[in-house]
C-alpha cells in the first residue's frame, strides 16, 4: 500500500458516497445514468468474486464489500426507490455495445484462461468504459449538476491516482499488470475532457454546461 493507492481508494469511495448522498438527500436521481451504475455494479460483482476464494487483508475485504453494497444501493435507488425521477429519455446509451465486445476481448486477452481470471479481466475492461453512458448523458443534456460533476471528478481522479500507484509499484516492487495499466490509461483519458471543464468551470463556481 502506498499513498497514491490509498488516495485513489479514498477518492473512489468518496465518489460512490457523493452519488449515494446526492440521490438520497434530494430524493432524485435526475441527471444520473442508471446504465453507468448498472455497469459499475457488474464491474464490482465480476471483479470481487475473489472475496469467496482469497483473503488479502481486512482493508481489502471491507472496501470490496462497501463498493459492492453501495453500488447495488445506487442501482436500487435509480430503478426502484426514486424511479419516477430517473431521466430514462436521456439515458439512451446501448449497454450491449460495451458489454459484448468487452466480454469477447476478455476471453481473448487475459493473464490466464480461467473463469475467475476472465471475469476479473472483463471487469477491468468494462470499468474503463463504464462511465460512457453517464458522459453521453451529460453531453446529450448539455449540462450536469455541480454535485454530479464532483462525483465525476472524484471517480476520474481515482484511476489517475492508480496510474501513479502503478508507476510507484513498478519502481518499488517491480510489479506491473499490463491489463490493468492499459485499461486504467484508457479510463483516465476518457475523463480528460471532463477534467478540463471541471477545472475551468466548476471550480470557478459555475455550473457545468457544454457550449451549444
Amino acid at each position: 500500500m502506498n499513498l497514491f493507492r490509498l488516495a485513489g481508494d479514498v477518492s473512489h469511495l468518496l465518489a460512490i458516497i457523493i452519488l449515494l448522498l446526492k440521490i438520497w438527500r434530494t430524493r432524485s436521481c435526475a441527471g444520473i445514468s442508471g446504465k453507468s451504475q448498472i455497469l459499475f455494479a457488474l464491474v464490482f460483482t465480476t471483479r470481487y468474486l475473489d472475496l469467496l476464494t482469497t483473503f488479502i487483508s481486512f482493508y481489502n475485504t471491507t472496501m470490496k464489500v462497501i463498493y459492492i453494497g453501495c453500488s447495488y444501493a445506487t442501482v436500487w435507488m435509480i430503478y426502484a426507490k426514486f424511479k419516477a425521477t430517473y431521466d430514462s429519455n436521456h439515458d439512451t446509451f446501448r449497454m450491449e455495445f460495451l458489454v459484448i465486445p468487452i466480454a469477447a476481448l476478455s476471453l481473448l486477452v487475459n493473464h490466464d484462461f480461467a473463469p475467475l481470471e476472465i471475469l476479473w479481466t472483463f471487469s477491468i475492461y468494462l470499468e474503463s468504459v463504464a462511465i460512457l453512458p453517464q458522459l453521453f448523458m451529460v453531453s446529450k443534456t448539455g449540462e450536469a449538476e455541480t454535485i454530479t460533476s464532483h462525483y465525476l471528478f472524484a471517480l476520474g481522479l481515482y484511476r489517475a491516482l492508480y496510474l501513479m500507484n502503478w508507476i510507484w509499484r513498478f519502481f518499488a516492487e517491480g510489479f506491473f499488470d499490463l491489463i490493468a495499466i492499459v485499461a486504467g490509461l484508457v479510463q483516465t483519458i476518457l475523463y480528460c475532457d471532463f477534467f478540463y471543464l471541471y477545472i475551468t468551470k466548476v471550480l470557478k463556481g459555475k455550473k457545468l454546461s457544454l457550449p451549444a
Partner: peptide, 10 residues
C-alpha cells in the same frame, strides 16, 4: 499448474 493470480488492488 495450480497458479492463480492474486489481485491485491481494488
Amino acid at each position: 499448474r495450480e497458479f492463480t493470480f492474486i489481485h491485491d488492488e481494488l
